[in-house]
């Protein structure tokens, strides 16, 4: 198993309820798994735990059978799991050009000289479709889509086996989102990657993944092959999510989109702090 979460629970300091509880996930080589849910459902917490950026309160996350707590800073296992962030601009160092950002990572993991790293960085940036004119620009002079491409190239520089992407397109313009979705899909093939796609956007998950987990209030409420989940959702919450997509109706739902308003949500009637 490439990456595995076993009974993971995460409780943040000074919080009563865990943000994530009893969570299991198995990521095989070249799998594509979607994690769907709304804000507060625990999906970002899960992403952070999967990449080893957050230690679970209970349970463990294993990379090739080894818990994150035993993976050292320069252990090659560490680079086998990489993350792509929601806000591509703020996840890049504003002082470094695209080429330097990627080159820095290459030199951290490989014994190569500055020039070789720079050449390899340029190749990677070309692979992810960054225009040649942009590779020596800093994030401030790149568009959102271009920053996201740099973020993806930086992840690829580690030669990972799993990419965890937390809302990879939600901060991008509509006409640019499809470019990034196509890129992620083709990289899965060319780099033989497993993908974990965390998103509230069911269209993104449907397009990129083979199986999916629906999360609600820190727990998995439904899981299964993506097309089955979309065609025949079993859990009422999954059905509600599908029905809520503006201009879309789930194949399994018999009601027209204008049917009775959704029942008041537990989350919305909660005043503030959870």
């Amino acid at each position: 198993m490439l990456l595995e979460a076993r009974d993971v629970e995460v409780t943040y300091p000074r919080q009563d309820a865990p943000a994530l509880r009893d969570f299991d996930l198995q990521v095989d080589e070249r799998a594509a798994i979607g994690i769907v849910g709304e804000s507060g459902s625990g999906k970002t917490t899960l992403g952070r735990a999967l990449i080893g950026a957050l230690a679970p309160t209970k349970g463990e996350v294993l990379v090739r059978g080894k818990p994150w707590s035993e993976v050292g800073r320069r252990d090659p296992l560490r680079r086998s799991v990489q993350m792509i962030f929601q806000d591509p601009y703020s996840s890049l160092n504003p002082h470094l050009t695209a080429r330097q950002t990627v080159g820095e990572v290459i030199r951290h993991w490989h014994r190569v000289g500055r020039h070789a790293a720079s050449r390899r960085a340029a190749d990677l940036l070309a692979d992810v479709g960054l225009p040649a004119a942009a590779i020596d620009r800093r994030p401030g002079r790149l568009s959102g889509g271009q920053c996201q491409r740099v973020g993806i190239a930086r992840a690829l520089a580690c030669e990972p086996q799993v990419l965890v992407a937390d809302e990879p397109t939600s901060s991008l313009d509509v006409s640019v989102q499809a470019q990034i979705l196509n890129l992620l899909r083709s990289l899965r093939e060319t780099h033989r990657l497993a993908l974990v796609i965390i998103s509230h956007d069911l269209g993104v998950v449907r397009y990129l993944t083979d199986s999916a987990v629906v999360m609600y209030a820190g727990e998995a409420v439904e899981r299964g092959p993506t097309d089955v989940l979309f065609a025949r959702p079993k859990h009422p919450y999954t059905r509600k999510l599908l029905d809520a997509i503006p201009g879309q109706t789930s194949a399994g739902a018999a009601q027209p989109p204008s049917a009775a308003p959704l029942a008041a949500q537990p989350r919305e009637t909660h005043a503030g702090r959870k």
């Binding site: 313009d173 006409s175 640019v176 499809a178 470019q179 196509n182 269209g203 397009y207 993506t226 997509i245």
Partner: peptide, 27 residues
């Protein structure tokens, strides 16, 4: 063509085995 491209680029517009009809470049 911009309206058409926006509609075609929506993730729900393509089958799972098709490539999305992305609009090249940026605004």
């Amino acid at each position: 063509p911009y309206t058409r491209a926006l509609l075609a680029a929506r993730p729900f517009a393509a089958g799972r085995d098709q490539e999305l009809a992305a609009i090249g470049g940026q605004p």
